[in-house]
Amino acid sequence: MSFEAISNFVAAILTLFIFSFLYKDNPFYKFAEALFIGVSMGYAIPLVYENAFMPFVYTPIFVEHKFIIIIPALMGSLYIFRFTKNLSWLSRYPIVFGMAIVGMGVPMSIHSSVLVQMRSAMLPMDNINTIIIFIGTVTILLYFFFSKAHRGFYGKVTNVGVWFLMVGFGASFGYTVMARISLLIGRIQFLVGDWLGLIK
């Protein structure tokens, strides 16, 4: 039996263990679930050690003698104190440095998510798409304006916004169904094709 056949067999059995949950909760499902978590962690820890700790902590300090690295390394190790009740406040210091990224992200996010998006909603209304985008954007924004009661003509306009939102939710739901079915198809393709060899 080749290595591929053995690995396919193990993967197929574990897939069936997970699928068995659809019938009802059982020890086989629990076993496969625990094994998955264990294997993921077992795989991630040496990978992170090899790709993060060794090149960015060990090698600079002990091989290249860049002792300045000791300061951020110690700072980072303060994260471990999250697990103690009395000293958990120490973990806030490395978090503070991490928050600098948020500061950098604010102007860029405003640019990409607000300014550029606004500009693309201000196109000349010379085709049906831009007209729909304009009506959708304005009516939805009005719907989320709560300082005025949604009654009368204003209420009718915000209702149009609700319809646009419903179309958006419908599209999201449709895509979600497609995604979930795709995942099932992927697994069944593996079982029926790679394992049983029934797909030509």
Binding site: S112, S120, I133, A171, S172, Y175, T176, S182
Partner: peptide, 15 residues
């Protein structure tokens, strides 16, 4: 993934 598609269409429209 298809789940994320609807969220990303606005970025497609804006180029």
């Amino acid at each position: 993934t298809a789940v994320m598609a609807a969220d990303n269409y606005p970025y497609l429209q804006s180029g």
